[in-house]
């Protein structure tokens, strides 16, 4: 069963010399020529793909989407207070609080993004989750039911900007009490800021924590 090679149609080749170099010297030459070509190709393609292309996108970005390109900075009273897409740490009772975060030492550090990477069977994870649940129950004595799952689990990015609508409603009684406002006022504020699934299909319903808190401050 030898491999049959048919080569009567070699002249069909679109011009150029025979494909495979024959002798060993020709082969040695071709390795070197490949490396030379590679070096020039690298220089030229780095200039196009590594420099011109990102600069073009930067130029188009600052022209078409300057807000997003700059990191979606959010202002309060003319001063930047964070990014609309990046979660941040809130710990005072009168503000909505985000999910547990493993990013950086105190959490919500955008220079150290990531999750706990703990296994579902990790004792460390279970102990930490238990402590989180206890802490939430203590801080939210008037909340109904158990805390929702997203409030007791660490996010994957560590800078998750959102909580679930349930996570927001769970905190409403505490916030109402701390701010001396009616519970219904807080609940309707949440309802106004909950975002549904995109096109009714994509992702999950959620509320942006910073947005909620800015709305709370704006109410006063």
């Amino acid at each position: 069963m030898s491999t049959l090679i048919t080569s009567p149609t070699k002249e069909k080749l679109a011009g150029g010399p025979a494909a495979e170099p024959a002798g060993p010297s020709a082969k040695g030459e071709s390795i070197l020529s490949h490396v030379v070509t590679s070096i020039i190709y690298t220089v030229v393609s780095v200039a196009i793909l590594g420099v011109i292309y990102p600069l073009l996108i930067t130029a188009l970005g600052s022209l078409l989407f300057p807000f997003q390109a700059g990191g979606s900075m959010v202002m309060q009273n003319g001063k930047p207070v964070g990014s609309a897409i990046i979660g941040q740490l809130f710990s005072k009772p009168q503000y909505f609080q985000g999910r547990p975060s493993a990013a950086g030492k105190n959490g919500y550090d955008p220079t150290s993004t990531g999750g706990t990477n703990l296994a579902p069977t990790s004792k460390k994870l279970i102990d930490a989750t238990k402590a989180t649940i206890d802490g939430l129950k203590k801080a939210n004595p008037d909340a109904q039911g158990a805390p929702p799952m997203d409030l007791v689990t660490s996010s994957g990015s560590g800078i998750d900007p959102d909580i679930s609508p349930e996570g927001a409603y769970y905190q409403a009684p505490r916030i109402a009490k701390a701010r001396h406002v009616a519970l219904d006022a807080v609940r309707s504020l949440i309802a106004a800021h909950v975002r549904g699934r995109t096109f009714g299909i994509l992702g999950e319903p959620r509320a942006n924590v910073l947005e909620l808190n800015l709305a709370l401050d704006a109410q006063k």
Binding site: Q68, P80, V81
Partner: peptide, 25 residues
């Protein structure tokens, strides 16, 4: 970009949040 992915060459910025906590963006 339209959806919010940044594209800039800025240094990281320290921003003071509404609770007074500083975050490096």
């Amino acid at each position: 970009l339209w959806q919010g992915v940044p594209q800039n060459f800025s240094s990281y910025v320290d921003v003071k949040g509404i609770e007074g906590v500083t975050q490096t963006l």
